[in-house]
Write a protein that binds this DNA or RNA. Structure first.
Lengths: 211, 211
DNA sequence: ACCTGAACACCGTTCAAGT
DNA sequence: ACCTGAACACCGTTCAAGT
């Protein structure tokens, strides 16, 4: 069967789930596609171009319609949660996405939705754009951390031991008091908490500028 | 001269400024140190261990004392700005830092300072920890983007042309209206805007829980 | 203890040659 | 047009052997 860009991307995403971004190589991909090593370079200029196509595929159909009759802050939380889900749908999805510089179609659609929604809430275009950046930074960075800790060996046991060893009662009293929350045992609650924080910030900066 | 861990880290950071994280290799580092290729492995278990030592060196002396008599939100902004400066001090500093899983001494000191400051503002330990996470995610993600765009060839001219080509008046009216703010021509103003947003969110969530 | 020499098992990318 | 075969110029890491 002849290769197509879509097929290469689909197989590459499956391979990503299997081996992780670190070990995703063009040679393993060629094996998975049952072709020789240089074949994919006829369809993609470089590995980077393939990774960007994969990143955009991750976001496919992301903001397919907003729920009607909701206030703007609910909508913003909804879109942010959908972005998180899209990034979580594949191993290392967040790092894959943040490695893309190119303006990708689905990423633009996401941005347009979020900026439009915030403009509807009363922000001017600059404030809406920068607030979208802040929200997106938050989502991507959170999911990056989430996926890194999920990939730890031993379910993170060794990491927790190292953390305990590094924490000193004299120098880190507050971190020790928060020790059980540092290990991030509730990623979704953790995510929602920070998301509500950022949205509350958007709300208060909007109220300040329109009052 | 014999190698020391500190000397290896210092030369590695200079090499990082010169070639960027992508092209920082153990072989180039050995050349810069004027030793043969495997020598650094006597001092660092792996490249990853070296990168983590470099990341911690980046944060050296980061929160060396807080200004006295300031309200908590000023202090939080101060610490966040110092983190940004530390990450900006070396090429790809933000990506270097976000690639570290290990609990590094200077990173812990930063976290202790920020959590303590927020506890002082009236947050409980969990809220203070998660707010610190949100702030840190924001700073690291913002500086990552900042350093990626700063490293673009042509001063980002080609990237701007690609963005204009990708924006469609019918599908991206809001992004087009915000086009001049998308290119991020004022990184510090952009950073401060988002920082104020997150801090305002922390303030409002604190007010909600203490009222 | 600290480093060299040399190898092992990989990489991304290119490109003439085949079909 | 699309892919193979084979090479180029690299990688991180290991480890016996030297000093």
């Amino acid at each position: 069967m002849r290769l197509t860009r879509d097929h290469v991307v689909a197989v590459a995403l499956d391979l990503l789930d299997e081996v992780g971004l670190e070990h995703l190589t063009m040679r393993k991909l060629a094996d998975a596609l049952d072709v020789r090593n240089g074949a994919t370079y006829w369809h993609f200029r470089s590995k980077q171009a393939l990774l960007e196509a994969m990143a955009d595929a991750l976001l496919a159909g992301l903001p397919a319609g907003l729920p009607a009759g909701q206030p703007w802050d609910e909508l913003a939380a909804h879109v942010a949660r959908r972005l998180r889900q899209a990034l979580l749908s594949r191993r290392d999805g967040a790092r894959l996405f943040s490695g893309s510089f190119f303006p990708l179609p689905n990423a633009l659609a996401y941005g347009e939705t979020m900026v439009g929604l915030l403009v509807g809430a009363g922000l001017d275009h600059r404030a809406a754009t920068w607030a979208t950046d802040t929200l997106t930074y938050y989502v991507v960075a959170h999911v990056t951390e989430e996926q890194l800790t999920a990939a730890l060996p031993d379910g993170g046991q060794a990491a927790r031991v190292r953390l305990d060893a590094a924490l000193d009662p004299d120098r880190h009293p507050h971190l020790l008091a928060a020790r059980d929350d540092l290990a991030a045992p509730h990623p979704t609650a953790h995510f929602d908490h920070g998301l509500a924080l950022v949205i509350a910030g958007i709300r208060s900066s909007r109220d300040r500028s329109t009052s």
